[in-house]
Design a protein around this nucleic acid. Sequence first.
DNA 1: AATATTTTCGAATATTTTTTGGTTTAACTA
DNA 2: TAGTTAAACCAAAAAATATTCGAAAATATT
Lengths: 152, 152
Amino acid sequence: MKDELDSKDIQILSLLLNNARLSNKEIAAKIEIAQSSTHDRIKKLTKKGYLKGAFALIDQKKLGLNIEVMLSIKLNKQHRSIIADFIEKASQFHGVIQLFHMAGNNDFILHIGVRNSDELRSFILDRLSTLDYIQSTETTMVLHNERVNNIL
Amino acid sequence: MKDELDSKDIQILSLLLNNARLSNKEIAAKIEIAQSSTHDRIKKLTKKGYLKGAFALIDQKKLGLNIEVMLSIKLNKQHRSIIADFIEKASQFHGVIQLFHMAGNNDFILHIGVRNSDELRSFILDRLSTLDYIQSTETTMVLHNERVNNIL
DNA sequence: AATATTTTCGAATATTTTTTGGTTTAACTA
DNA sequence: TAGTTAAACCAAAAAATATTCGAAAATATT
């Protein structure tokens, strides 16, 4: 099994990237190969590690998460174990959507959703600030975000 | 049809949030209601607008996108039409994964993937900088990112 | 060119989704 | 509270889809 992609594979990835719930049959129709071939290819793409899963897109505002923010975070130590600890802890905080470990001025960016400003305050004071290696945080509000996924 | 969620609905959203390709049958088994009930609920959740789609997760490095960066962008004008123009153009640039419209110091954050530093340079100089309303950009490398989705 | 390997396909079989119709449960109203 | 309505539930039937498999075609290797 060669680990290279042809144009049909790219098309499959591209379709799934935009709609992970497409059926095998629909994909087959769109790229014009047999259903069984599509099935084979998706299986291989998964086995080879190109497809690593899928997640649903949920309307956060309907869930009451009215405010979305980016929290830029600096730690006062860069030790490996501190980094690992932060990632583990932060991943468990309710409201965290994405976690970015950065090289540069900030160590981490947390993309989070909260119900209101009280909850944001609580996130920062009761959650983050209880970690004693946090040096500073900076909060910026997200007005709008789009998953573009223009990578194929 | 009431627009409220009970615990089964939350469970369904939670499952799909982490694995959008779960089958109806699998979901039914996990939350212990009949397949037809699960089916009904997912249909309703979609109709009510809680479920807005699903994205496949793809291994970017395997596609040759070795560098992931956050590009913080300031515009020199805040006019509505400029904002709209930027969103439209930026969404079409190859490599763009996510686009965040921000309130604050920066106007936008672009989360992008590129093959190498030449491509990054080209993205900034040949793409972004040809837009005459760009005031400044700041590039920060992403070492690692995780979709946490801890919102339910 | 001959051989081996991989990919593709259509058709069969297996499984899942979707619909249906009737029952139970919950919520609301008089 | 009894009666009414609406929503949620379920099992089973029907429809659609996914999966498997052997053979043919294409591709790669020797």
